[in-house]
C-alpha cells in the first residue's frame, strides 16, 4: 500500500519532469523564432530594398513584397502570420530564386542529409573507439590519443577542409574536389572528404569526453568488484564500463549532431556542394531573408528537439537520472 503510493507519486513527478522539459523546449523555439522574425525588422532602412539589393521594382511589386513579408502590418500581426505559415512548413518565397523556400530546402536536403549522417557515423564510431581503447590501454596510447584529440578539437572545419582538399583530391587525386555525385556509391565517394572534414572536430570532442567518462568508470569500485568476481575483461568493459558511461556521451552526441547542421555551411562552401549550408551562406550574402529565416528556424528546432529527446532518453539509459531529475 505504502509502496504503491510512493510509486504513483514518483510517476507523477516523472511525468511532471517530462512536461517541464517539453515545455521548456517549446518556449525556447518560440522565443528564438521571435528573434529570427525580428531580424528582418531590424534591417536599417527599408527591408524590402535591402532584400532586392537595389533592383528596380515597380511600386506594385514593392507593395506585394511588403505584404508577403507582413511588413505592412504591425510586428505582432506580422509575426503571427509568419509563424502560422511556418508551422505549416511554408516559409514563403525566396526573393533570389523566386521559388518556395520549402522546396529549395527539401531539394538540397538530398545532399546535406546524407552528409550529416555520414559525418556523424564517422565521428561517433572513430571517437568512441579511440576513447575506449585509450582509456583501457592507458600509458603511451592514452597520451597519444589525448594529443590527437586536443589538436582535432582545435582544428576549424575550413582548415581541415582545405587540408584534405589539397592532399587527397588535388595532390593524390583519390577523391573529387567538387560536386555531390549521382547514385548512392558515387554520392558516398563525393561526400567522403566533406564528411571527414566535418567529423574531425566532433571526433576530437567525443574522444576526449569519452576517454574521461570511460576512465572514470574504470576506476570505480563496481568495476573492481566485477573483476574480482572473475567476470571476463570484455564483459566488464561492455556491461560495467560502456553502459554506465553511455549517458554523458549521449548528451555530447546530441549536441554534436545538431552542430553538424550548421557546420554544413562551411564544408559545403569549401567543397562546392549544393546543400542547405551553402544555400544559407549564399542567401545571407544576397539577403534572401525568407530562406535565411527558414533555415535558421529549422536549425534551432533541430537543436532543441535533439537535446530534448536526449534529455528524455536519459532515464531509460541510466535510471539514476530519473530519480535525481524527478526529485528536483
Amino acid at each position: 500500500m505504502k509502496r504503491t503510493r510512493a510509486d504513483r507519486a514518483g510517476k507523477r513527478a516523472f511525468a511532471g519532469w517530462i512536461g517541464k522539459r517539453v515545455l521548456g523546449g517549446i518556449l525556447t523555439v518560440l522565443l528564438a523564432s521571435v528573434l529570427i522574425y525580428g531580424a528582418l525588422r531590424l534591417v536599417p532602412g527599408d527591408p524590402v530594398l535591402a532584400m532586392t539589393g537595389g533592383r528596380r521594382l515597380t511600386p506594385d511589386q514593392i507593395e506585394a513584397l511588403r505584404h508577403r513579408h507582413g511588413l505592412d502590418r504591425g510586428f505582432v500581426q506580422g509575426y503571427l502570420a509568419w509563424i502560422g505559415d511556418a508551422l505549416r512548413l511554408d516559409f514563403g518565397m525566396s526573393t533570389n530564386y523566386q521559388t518556395s523556400v520549402t522546396s529549395l530546402i527539401t531539394n538540397r536536403l538530398g545532399v546535406s542529409g546524407p552528409l550529416i549522417l555520414y559525418s556523424a557515423v564517422l565521428a561517433v564510431v572513430s571517437g568512441l573507439a579511440v576513447a575506449l581503447v585509450s582509456a583501457v590501454k592507458g600509458g603511451l596510447v592514452n597520451r597519444a590519443a589525448g594529443m590527437a584529440a586536443a589538436v582535432t578539437t582545435a582544428t576549424p572545419t575550413f582548415v581541415s577542409a582545405i587540408g584534405l582538399l589539397a592532399l587527397f583530391s588535388v595532390g593524390l587525386g583519390w577523391f573529387p574536389a567538387t560536386g555531390a555525385g549521382t547514385g548512392l556509391a558515387d554520392r558516398l565517394w563525393h561526400l567522403t572528404l566533406p564528411a571527414v572534414a566535418m567529423a574531425i572536430v566532433a571526433f576530437g570532442v567525443l574522444a576526449r569526453v569519452g576517454n574521461a567518462a570511460f576512465a572514470e568508470e574504470l576506476r570505480r569500485e563496481h568495476v573492481e568488484v566485477a573483476r574480482s568476481r572473475g567476470v571476463g575483461a570484455a564483459a566488464v568493459i561492455r556491461r560495467h564500463v560502456v553502459r554506465n558511461a553511455l549517458a554523458p556521451m549521449l548528451t555530447i552526441v546530441g549536441l554534436l549532431f545538431a552542430s553538424l547542421f550548421v557546420g554544413t555551411a562551411v564544408v559545403e562552401t569549401a567543397f562546392g556542394l549544393d546543400g542547405v549550408g551553402s544555400l544559407l551562406v549564399s542567401s545571407v550574402s544576397r539577403r534572401d531573408f525568407p530562406v535565411v529565416q527558414g533555415i535558421a528556424l529549422i536549425a534551432v528546432l533541430l537543436f532543441v528537439v535533439v537535446n530534448t529527446l536526449v534529455d528524455l532518453a536519459m532515464p531509460f539509459i541510466d535510471p539514476r537520472v530519473a530519480l535525481g531529475g524527478a526529485g528536483r
Binding site: 528564438a32 547542421f261 550548421v262 545571407v284 535565411v292 537543436f303
Partner: peptide
C-alpha cells in the same frame, strides 16, 4: 540553443 555561427550569419 542558438548555434553561435548561425546567430552571426543572421
Amino acid at each position: 540553443a542558438f548555434p553561435s555561427l548561425l546567430l552571426a550569419m543572421l
